[in-house]
């Protein structure tokens, strides 16, 4: 295919046929969507009725971590699987040498990274009564990680891999552990005991936020940490040029 294929508006036969099919599909789905009655009974009333017993005041958090908590648990495991997939594919392309970091950028990282961690903690705490929660807090933590990764600090290469791995599995393990404890004590998977739901949800959210943050940052790093290099590095780095 020539490089400028996308530029041409003329499509070949197969593409025209596919365009026709897509338009038919969209028209059909549009007809279906326009016939949905707008007074359909949603689940809002059911959630509002059970809100008192869920331990949190925010309905979305109640759905995420109480009513459909097994869903969220498996979803956290999916995030872990994404990291395992990326780590099994390649090593992360970390900076080769010490690159120059401008003072402006140092200032940006120094100012923004602590504020991001603070906002992440705030969002996790706020998840129990207003909007917020583990995913939002974890996303902000991941953004702080991206901020540090993108600055190419030389000490990124010396991050030990074991605490990284422990941090990655901390959230899912904690979640599964609490689920099993609930199964043991109350007989229901993730059926929190009476009165402890609020605290348990906050604990799960904090652990999951940490794990999601590390997950997103290591997905941005694009591969597993380079352990072999780190062991070679300290003797090779101090006498520069000797490794050649």
């Amino acid at each position: 295919m020539p490089k400028t294929r996308n530029r041409h508006k003329r499509l070949d036969g197969f593409q025209r046929l596919f365009l026709l099919l897509v338009v038919c599909l969209i028209t059909l789905l549009g007809c279906i969507l326009s016939t949905i009655p707008n007074s359909a009974p949603g689940l809002a009333d059911a959630v509002a009725r059970l809100q008192e017993r869920s331990g949190v005041k925010s309905p979305v958090t109640a759905v995420l971590l109480n009513f459909r908590a097994y869903d969220t648990m498996l979803e956290v495991v999916v995030l872990l699987l994404a990291v395992i997939g990326s780590w099994s594919l390649t090593k992360s392309p970390l900076p080769e040498q010490d690159t120059d970091i401008s003072p402006v950028q140092m200032g940006v990282v120094r100012l923004l990274a602590p504020v991001m961690c603070l906002v992440a903690a705030y969002l996790v705490w706020q998840g129990s009564h207003l909007a917020g929660g583990a995913f939002q807090g974890g996303a902000i933590l991941g953004a702080a990680g991206v901020l540090i990764l993108v600055s190419d600090f030389p000490w990124i290469r010396t991050i030990p891999a074991l605490p990284l791995r422990i941090g990655l599995v901390l959230g899912p393990l904690f979640f599964v552990g609490i689920a099993l404890c609930c199964l043991f004590f109350t007989g229901k998977l993730l059926g929190y005991p009476e009165g402890t739901a609020g605290w348990l949800i906050l604990l799960i959210e904090a652990a999951c936020a940490l794990s999601i943050g590390i997950t997103l940052a290591s997905l941005f790093a694009g591969g597993r940490p380079d352990n072999t290099m780190k062991k070679i590095q300290p003797p090779a780095k101090h006498p520069p040029g000797k490794s050649l």
Binding site: V108, L112, G132, V150
Partner: peptide, 25 residues
């Protein structure tokens, strides 16, 4: 709705991230 202030805070915090990546990468 006061929650939107938090969304604005997140916007303001993370807006610089894409630009920083662009500059570095």
């Amino acid at each position: 709705n006061l929650v939107l202030l938090d969304v604005a805070l997140v916007f303001a915090l993370l807006a610089a991230l894409a630009t920083l990546t662009f500059i570095r990468r």
